[in-house]
């Protein structure tokens, strides 16, 4: 019998790892899309949204095709002794892929809402582009970004379909909370499923509550 807390710690670890990788990528992508008019804008928007609109099982199968033993990346990794499929790393990749669009779609409008005048003023004050981004854009858009990070974390920790396809259901290795809920329910152990339902529901409620608190109650008057 596996440790009942293992799925909790595994899910938290997987979601945190997914967020650590997704956060800089998602925030950078959101800023790239928010700050530039370029010909690939629509294409990138579409690609970012894909994991959100595709069924999780389809996303999982794509990941297997890419990172599996015969996949483009998986084959190369296998040749240096790294195997991702059916490991907690696979669960983190699956969680990160489905969390990315959630983060980008929350952060991008927040960044777009930072007035162009403020960005221009930052530049005229002698700030190089990276400092304008850190000190003007991130500070102006932090509510949207934090909300995006929280929603992405909850999406990552709740990921089921793609994780099952890509990481499998190996007790004591890849059985995250959503997978454990499914296993317990399949096995007629609803009380075992219930404790993970409780943890995930509490996380979801907390995220919704904090997100609502972060949203400005009235339009802010700009200086």
């Amino acid at each position: 019998m596996t440790d009942p807390f293992f799925p909790v710690w595994l899910s938290l670890g997987v979601a945190l790892l997914a967020l650590v990788v997704t956060a800089p990528l998602g925030i950078g992508l959101a800023w790239f899309q928010a700050s530039r008019q370029h010909r690939f804008r629509g294409l990138i928007d579409g690609l970012v949204l894909m994991p959100m609109v595709l069924p999780p099982s389809v996303v999982g199968l794509f990941l297997v095709w890419i990172f599996g033993r015969r996949g483009v990346v998986g084959h190369a990794l296998e040749s240096v002794g790294v195997r991702l499929v059916f490991t907690p790393w696979a669960a983190a990749i699956a969680s990160g892929v489905v969390a990315l669009p959630v983060l980008v779609k929350a952060a991008q409008p927040a960044m777009e809402a930072v007035p162009q005048e403020l960005i221009l003023i930052g530049r005229t004050l002698g700030l190089p582009p990276h400092e304008v981004f850190l000190r003007v854009v991130l500070r102006g858009a932090w509510r949207g970004i934090v909300t995006g990070l929280m929603l992405a974390f909850v999406r990552a920790i709740g990921e089921f379909g793609a994780t099952l396809m890509f990481a499998g259901n190996i007790p004591g290795r890849t059985n995250t909370m959503p997978i454990e809920i499914w296993s317990a329910y399949q096995g007629g152990e609803e009380s075992r499923a219930f404790r993970y339902v409780l943890v995930l529901t509490a996380l979801g409620v907390m995220t919704v509550f904090v997100s609502a608190r972060l949203a400005p109650s009235k339009p802010r008057r700009l200086g």
């Binding site: 003023i121 005229t124 002698g126 003007v136």
Partner: peptide
């Protein structure tokens, strides 16, 4: 020449201050 190297002091008509900073932080921002 990049904008941040031009050394032009710019005061626009609207949205002139950083709303997340107090007056002192605004003045010393650059």
């Amino acid at each position: 020449l990049a904008t941040h190297l031009r050394r032009i002091g710019y005061v626009p008509q609207h949205h002139s201050l950083f709303p997340f900073c107090d007056v002192t932080a605004n003045v010393v921002f650059g």
